[in-house]
């Protein structure tokens, strides 16, 4: 487990600096230094008066299994949302005015968020999950120009 600080809740009471035995909480970027944080220690979490620090695990339980019928229904919706986003892309590319571009951007963001959520409920909640690992294993277009070979390789290292 590593301690993480929600900077939006942090009120700079600095108790975490006083109680941390390794100095992990005292950093220049507001984030707790995970490499110094002690797995079993939660001194900062308990000391923080604003509830801004929590401990998060490095390993997660697998996502609950999904039933085939649900997966199919979510997939039908996902396909539709993908087509809708392609339409928003086309509208963005053709946008002749700032207003048209604004609307297309907002729609694209919105459609993407809904599509991502459908994927999360289809087994892709966790990057550590098997579906995500299979996705990495079977990436298409690896021979195409611009494919980020190093990024894909590093991800497979991180998610073996």
């Amino acid at each position: 487990m590593i301690a993480v600080r929600n900077i939006r809740l942090c009120t700079k009471d600095c108790l975490c600096l006083y109680v941390c035995p390794t100095g992990a909480t005292n950093t220049e970027n507001g984030q707790i230094d995970a490499s110094k944080c002690l797995d079993a220690c939660r001194a900062c979490v308990d000391a923080c008066p604003s509830g801004a620090i929590s401990k998060v695990p490095m390993n997660y339980p697998p996502q609950q299994a999904k039933q085939e019928g649900t997966l199919q229904a979510l997939r039908a919706l996902l396909d539709s949302k993908l087509a809708q986003e392609r339409a928003a892309d086309a509208m963005l590319a053709q946008a002749a005015t700032p207003a048209a571009a604004q609307f297309a951007k907002a729609m694209k963001m919105s459609l993407r968020l809904v599509a991502e959520d459908l994927l999360r409920e289809s087994g892709y909640m966790l990057p550590q999950g098997q579906p995500a690992r299979d996705f990495l294993k079977n990436l298409p277009d690896q021979d195409q120009p611009g494919f980020p070979v190093d990024a894909a390789a590093r991800l497979k290292e991180l998610l073996p």
Partner: peptide
Amino acid sequence: GLFTRLADFFESRSVPEGDW
């Protein structure tokens, strides 16, 4: 960041199609 680079690559290959 690595997943975002993958996303950007595939996004660049996606073909816009359709209208409102």
